[in-house]
């Protein structure tokens, strides 16, 4: 059964206020005020000097579980919110893998689930290892992207993207953080980056994400009452409060600490929030928890995973 062996994260120290980001994007003062006062957004993490490679290096530097185990890594999966993040055929992910002793691994990108691609990659990684019967092998899921263009800076009416990265080491079996179930709902009917699609996404967001979480939890043979904590994607507090109301789940048990401090870190949010929950002692041995993510723009996806710690 797929298990998380370790998680390394990196969020650069640089911060930009949402007023500045809103100015870059041509948002009105009122729009920015709504983001700050209503959605409770504040600062966005950015690394003004580094590229994608530097983000991923930061996450790998924090992945202690990888040290000495590099030779066991069979696959490296970069989970993408945006399918194309560097000029073709530049491949900074491969360069980073070479530098970290992972040149022997099969390195590729998976995605087209928007910001839920990180959960897809985690499921795919464990499944690849298990299907090969490779119980000694490991897979590495990398997440994190640069806010290189307007589309990669703003989730219209919802959030701002920030820069950060995570590296998650995965095994086909293990006891530390075992994956129990995964649910995914793809909404290809929401397929453009225009305002209408953004509104459509917002209309279905709370109900669909709540249904996806419920589906993952039920498939794991659990009820929401069993779930100790939810590790969300960092869109905004209001959106999660709506999801909690729909689920009948206490909002205090959703790790929203990073929403106002970093922005929405593409596919890395759930992993960054894992480390936050770990630091706060919110992950208890034997207790189930949930990772959940959704993304929209040109193609919407809602995903959730149930784990036991």
């Amino acid at each position: 059964m797929t298990a998380v062996v370790g998680v390394g994260v990196w969020v650069p120290e640089g911060r930009v206020g949402i007023e500045e980001v809103g100015g870059e994007l041509g948002l009105s003062g009122m729009q920015v005020k709504i983001f700050r006062r209503y959605h409770r957004l504040g600062e966005i993490a950015r690394d003004p000097h580094g590229g994608l490679a530097e983000l991923l290096r930061g996450a790998l530097d924090g992945l202690d579980a990888l040290r000495g185990q590099e030779h066991r890594v069979r696959y490296v999966l970069h989970a993408r919110t945006f399918p194309t993040v560097v000029p073709y055929p530049h491949d900074p992910v491969r360069e980073v893998c070479d530098a970290y002793g992972l040149g022997h691994a099969a390195v590729f990108a998976v995605g087209h689930h928007a910001c839920a691609s990180g959960l897809l990659a985690l499921d795919a990684a464990g499944r690849l290892l298990a299907a090969e019967g490779d119980h000694d092998g490991l897979a590495l899921v990398l997440t994190g992207e640069k806010t290189f263009t307007a589309e990669a800076r703003l989730v219209p009416g919802t959030s701002f993207f920030g820069e950060g990265a995570a590296a998650c080491l995965v095994a086909a079996t293990g006891e530390r953080d075992r994956l129990l179930a995964y649910a995914s709902d793809l909404r290809g009917d929401i397929d453009s980056g225009d305002e209408e699609a953004a509104l459509a996404f917002q209309r279905v967001y709370a109900d669909t994400l709540a249904a996806t979480i419920t589906a993952a939890v039920a498939r794991a043979g659990l009820a929401m009452d069993d779930v100790g904590v939810v590790l969300p994607h960092n869109v905004n507090r209001v959106a999660w409060h709506q999801v909690c109301r729909t689920l009948g789940y206490p909002r205090e048990r959703v790790v929203l600490d990073n929403v106002a401090a970093t922005g929405h870190l593409f596919c890395a949010d759930s992993f960054v929030n894992y480390r936050t929950a770990q630091a706060r002692g919110l992950l208890r041995q034997g207790e189930p928890y949930v990772m959940a993510a959704a993304g929209a723009g040109s193609g919407a996806a809602f995903s959730a995973m149930a784990f036991v710690h």
Binding site: M1, T2, A130, A131, L180, A183, A216, A218, R219
Partner: peptide, 14 residues
């Protein structure tokens, strides 16, 4: 369409 999955089990084969 909602799809749910559980991890690959040892006995699972195509």
């Amino acid at each position: 369409m909602m799809r749910t999955f559980v991890p690959h089990a040892a006995a699972d084969e195509a």
